[in-house]
Simulated assay, not measured.
Amino acid sequence: MFKKLQKRWRAGLVTVVALSLGMGAVVYTQGASAATFPTATGTTKLTASKAVSGTFDGGLKRFVGSGALGGDSQDEGQDPLFTLADGATLKNVIIGSPAADGVHCLGSCTISNVWWENVGEDAATFKGGSSAKYTVTGGAAKGADDKVFQHNGGGTLTVSNFAVSDFGKLYRSCGNCKTQYKRSVVLKNVTATAPGGSLVGINSNFGDTATLSGITISGDSKKKIAICVTFKGNKTGAEPTKVATQTAATGGDGTNCKFSTSNITYK
């Protein structure tokens, strides 16, 4: 319990995010010592995963798990708060704690202006096929012991105008799923605030690619946050083997990790 409380007070984000909610521009200023998330307009408890097809606009209500969804641990196999059908959009939602396994995209999906106050198992998991297109735009996440975005299916995930703090990995292409794909991730205009482990983890042996631009890293004076880590993935469930780590100093390898030193800014 103390660890969870401690996580909520640790270093936050340094960014100003302007978002349109259909009611005019709303500006959220996030200071150097603590992230300022939008104020919830109410709280809804979910005892079972909420299925979304079409568009669900949460009106900036906070959604938390209860009963069977009452976990905020790293235990595998938890159910999500939201399950998005192919083509669905989830927007203007605050995901509180307990967050269970966040959001699952079963196909192509859009996640817009969604805020994770304290990531449970993962913030979002992407499960579509090889041609799926996933978009995460706006919003932020903090307090992820391990992963923020988990990519188990195929396709391409694009994350833009997003902020993350106090995290293990911002993005991970599944390293040991029974069915593997060539996966792609695009990060642009993303702010990451230490402590953090890595921005991207991908499987070079399956042809994964990561393209990064407009990345700002804050509070990491020793540059400990890895930019792009490549692994040798497998289909057996075994722990994947790390191949190489690309840093802001080295730049990307041009094949799997695609970024230059000018794409990374430290503050």
Rank of each mutant, 00 (worst) to 15 (best):
F231R: 08
F82D: 11
V159I: 15
D122Q: 03
A163Q: 09
T47Y: 06
H104G: 00
D145H: 03
A25E: 15
K4H: 08
K91D: 11
L21C: 04
L187Q: 11
V190W: 00
T43L: 12
K7P: 01
A140I: 10
T236R: 01
K61W: 03
I264P: 02
S165K: 01
A40T: 04
I202V: 15
K223R: 14
M23G: 05
K223F: 03
W115V: 13
S221L: 15
D208W: 00
F82M: 05
D166E: 15
L81I: 15
G219K: 11
T43E: 01
G252A: 11
F167K: 09
S49C: 03
V26I: 06
G214S: 13
L170G: 14
R8K: 08
G87Y: 12
L13D: 13
S131Y: 05
K242Y: 11
A68W: 09
A100V: 00
F149S: 15
I111F: 03
T241M: 10
Q74D: 14
L21N: 10
G207I: 04
L60G: 02
A34S: 14
F206N: 07
K127G: 01
T245I: 10
G107I: 14
L157R: 10
T216H: 11
V186H: 05
D79Y: 06
A163L: 01
F37S: 02
T193M: 12
T15I: 05
K223S: 06
A48Q: 07
N205F: 05
G22C: 15
K50Y: 15
Y181L: 11
A51P: 00
V17Q: 15
A210S: 08
L187R: 07
G87F: 04
T193A: 12
L19E: 15
L13T: 13
Y181F: 06
K235F: 07
V185Q: 04
S213F: 10
Q30S: 07
T230W: 13
K61C: 12
